[in-house]
Structure formats: structure tokens, C-alpha cells
Amino acid sequence: PEDEKKAKEALKRANGDEDKAKEILRKLGVDPDRAEELLRRLR
């Protein structure tokens, strides 16, 4: 869904750096736990 698209985009923008991607997602208003879960799934 929408969050998943955001997560993929964030990872791309962060050049695969998960911590940076998490930060980006947090700024986009995605719940930190949700962000973590999404990134884990994309790994």
C-alpha cells in the first residue's frame, strides 16, 4: 500500500541505508515501528 511505496522510495533515497530510510519515513509521518517492519520486509 501507500506506506510500502514510501518505504521503497525512502530506501532508494537513502541509498539502501536503513537508518537513513527510517529517518525519512519518520519525517513522512510513518509510525517508527511500522517503518521498521516495512524496511525489514523489503530487505
Score class of each variant (00 low, 15 high):
Ala21Thr: 03
Glu2Leu: 10
Ala7His: 02
Arg41Gln: 15
Arg41Asn: 14
Arg34Phe: 10
Lys22Asp: 02
Asp17Arg: 06
Asp31Lys: 08
Leu28Asn: 08
Glu18Phe: 15
Lys12Ile: 13
Asp3Glu: 12
Ala10Asp: 01
Arg41Lys: 14
Ala35Met: 08
Asp33His: 11
Arg43Gly: 13
Arg13Ile: 14
Asp3Leu: 13
Lys27Tyr: 07
Lys5Cys: 06
Val30Asp: 01
Asp31Ile: 04
Leu42Tyr: 04
Ala14Val: 07
Leu38Ile: 12
Lys8Val: 12
Arg40Phe: 03
Arg40Thr: 09
Lys27Pro: 01
Arg34Asp: 10
Leu38Tyr: 03
Arg13Asn: 11
Lys27Gln: 14
Glu36Asn: 08
Arg26Gln: 14
Glu37Arg: 04
Lys5Tyr: 11
Asp3Ile: 10
Lys20Asp: 06
Gly29Ala: 03
Leu38Asp: 02
Leu11Gln: 02
Lys6Ile: 14
Arg41Leu: 10
Asp31His: 12
Arg34His: 11
Glu2Phe: 09
Ala21Trp: 03
Pro32Cys: 08
Arg13Phe: 10
Arg43Asn: 11
Lys20Pro: 01
Lys5Gln: 13
Lys12Glu: 13
Lys27Met: 14
Glu9Trp: 06
Ala35Gly: 04
Val30Gly: 01
Arg13Pro: 01
Arg43Leu: 15
Glu23Asn: 06
Gly16Ala: 03
Lys5Arg: 13
Pro32Lys: 12
Arg13Leu: 15
Leu25Met: 07
Gly16Ser: 03
Ala21Asp: 00
Ala35His: 03
Lys6Trp: 15
Lys20Gln: 10
Lys22Glu: 03
Leu38Gln: 03
Asp19Ser: 14
Glu4Leu: 15
Pro1Tyr: 13
Arg43Thr: 13
Pro32Ala: 13
Arg13Cys: 10
Ala10Pro: 00
Glu37Phe: 02
Pro32Leu: 12
Lys27Ala: 13
Arg40Ile: 11
Glu4Tyr: 15
Arg34Lys: 14
Glu4Asp: 08
Asp17Trp: 04
Pro1Val: 14
Leu42Phe: 06
Lys8Ala: 10
Lys20Val: 14
Asp19Pro: 06
Gly29Arg: 02
Ala10Phe: 00
Leu39His: 00
Asn15Ala: 09
Leu25His: 00
Glu37Lys: 05
Asp3Val: 08
Glu36His: 04
Arg40Ala: 14
Lys6Arg: 11
Lys12Ala: 14
Val30Glu: 03
Lys22Met: 13
Lys20Thr: 09
Asn15Thr: 04
Val30Lys: 01
Pro32Trp: 08
Glu9Ser: 07
Asp31Arg: 06
Glu36Ile: 05
Glu4Gln: 09
Asp17Asn: 12
Ala35Trp: 08
Asp19Gln: 13
Pro1Trp: 15
Asp19Gly: 13
Pro32Gln: 10
Leu28Tyr: 05
Glu2Arg: 07
Glu9Leu: 06
Glu23Arg: 07
Lys6Asn: 09
Asp31Met: 09
Asp17Val: 06
Arg41His: 14
Val30Thr: 04
